[in-house]
Amino acid sequence: MASIAARRLAKELKEIHAEGCPVGINLLKADDFETWWFSIEVMGESLYKNEAYTLQFRFDAQYPISSPAVQFVVTDGHQAPIHPHVYSNGHICASILGNEWSPVLSVTAVCVTLQSMLASCKKKERPVDNDRYVRHAPDNPKKTQFHYDDDT
C-alpha cells in the first residue's frame, strides 16, 4: 500500500538523485520514508561561514498535505546553529513549517528557505525564550504552537 506520502517522497528522492541538491545542501540519509537527513551550509559571506549543520525531516502519512517535522539535529556531536529562530534543542520557528506550510513546497525547497534564513541573520543569538521553551518542548516541533514574530 503506497500512501500518498510514500509516492511523493519517492519522486522527490528520485529528483534529488537525478539532479542533485541545491548548492550548499547535501543528502545525508534517506533510506526510508520516515526520516531524512541533510547537511546544510550557507554559501558566501555570512555569520555561518564554514559551518555545516544537519537538518532532520520527519514525515507522517499525510505528507505533503501536512508539513514535515523539521529540526536541526543536536545529538551525536551535532549542534543547532545559533540563530534568533532556532532553539538549542534544534527546533525552528519558521512559519512555512507551521501555518504557512503548503504542499507546493518540497523537501529541498524547505532546505533552501532555511538556508536563506541563516544567510540573512544579523546577529548570532538564541531566541529570547530559549531556556523556557527547551525545558518544556515536545519531542515533535509540530506540536508546538509557535508565534511567528517576523518574516523569515
Binding site: 500518498i4 509516492r7 519522486k11 504542499p103 507546493v104 518540497s106
Partner: peptide
C-alpha cells in the same frame, strides 16, 4: 509553475 511532482498525485486521484 506548479511542479508536476507537487500536483500529480492529487491530479491522478
Amino acid at each position: 509553475g506548479v511542479q508536476e511532482l507537487v500536483y500529480e498525485d492529487f491530479y491522478d486521484q
